[in-house]
Design a protein around this nucleic acid. Structure first.
Lengths: 178, 178
DNA sequence: GCCGACATGTAATGGGTTACATGATTTA
DNA sequence: TAAATCATGTAACCCATTACATGTCGGC
């Protein structure tokens, strides 16, 4: 139940409504959740029941009511405990690599097409992360302490580096086999 | 249903029993499946029903009977069709990165411990891939054509490169923040 | 006598996704 | 008038995992 801590983490910065969380997950290029409402709203109910968050209903005139959630002391402690749990290795599920494993069965044209499409997707993803980085820059400048800002920027750099290497690798491969 | 094509791919090389597939998935460091029997045996039944594989029961005296599956022409065509489908971006689920996002809430000792544990896991994984590479080398030398051997080695290199970069990145980070 | 390898399978559960449902307001 | 945004939530489904169930054989 990792999403639980992702939510607690976001709430540790500022109180948020389910809708806000949903958008944050959907927009975040480096978080892998789709931002589907099922998981989020259910988890918020659970977190509330566990007293990890408090709920405040904000009535609005021009829009539906917002349920704003604030992290509690117990919630902060749960987050801190999770931060101390031994890290797991990344789970990389690369469909393309699987295709490539058997791709010698393709003719040259189809193989090249496969590589080209993958390269394009990688470039699009790269651009999206770069754009998100630009958007976040303005907002995050004064948020958190210097260490958290440093971590955040190093993490984004790592993601960009990953996609850059993946791209360079495919391009090399193309050169070599076609 | 990606595992379907992973199975068909393996069967396109040689006929195999469910037990063989289970072991292959469990051992393969770069395939992300656990090799659990539920998925595999169910999928084999389905593939058989779809006429993508044929089943042959091999009775043995000293061990239980093996159900050996062989890919059919229809199965080969299904595999080929899948190979031509547009590739998807890798889904990287990195729990550690999530922890790190909020890790500025940890004290120096705990943060360092987190980094150290991650580094260790990365090194173990690296070694396991290298060992698998050694094991496979002997077996694969005469298997498949030269293009498939080239693809396979480039894919393994890419995985090793990924873990190497991840490791180098954590080490840099440690230097910078501690 | 227990453990691991061989070999096939089922049950229960967890985690995540898409699609659906509702209903108001703003924008093209 | 159709759509998108705001806001919360439910239903159905799929994929994957762990644990369980069964039975034989060989080695320590």
């Amino acid at each position: 139940m990792v999403i639980q801590y992702a939510i607690l983490g976001l709430l540790s910065r500022q109180p948020l409504a389910g809708y806000d969380l949903k958008k944050l997950f959907a927009e975040a290029e480096t978080l892998y959740w789709s931002g589907n409402s099922n998981q989020i709203y259910r988890m918020l109910v659970k977190l509330h029941k566990d007293n990890f968050v408090t709920q405040e209903v904000h009535q609005q005139e021009d829009a539906p009511a917002r349920k704003v959630y604030t992290i509690t002391q117990a919630g902060k402690e749960a987050l801190l405990t999770w931060l101390q749990t031994p890290p797991e290795l990344p789970q990389v599920r690369n469909h393309f690599m699987l295709q490539l494993t058997w791709a010698s069965q393709l003719n040259d044209a189809d193989l090249e097409k496969l590589l080209t499409l993958y390269e394009e997707e990688l470039r699009v993803k790269q651009m999206m992360i770069r754009e998100q980085l630009q958007r976040d820059k303005g907002l995050a400048e004064n948020l958190g302490n210097s260490r958290s800002r440093l971590l955040e920027s190093r993490i984004t750099e790592r993601w960009l580096d990953y996609y850059a290497h993946e791209l360079a690798w495919v391009q090399d491969l193309r050169q070599e086999i076609l």
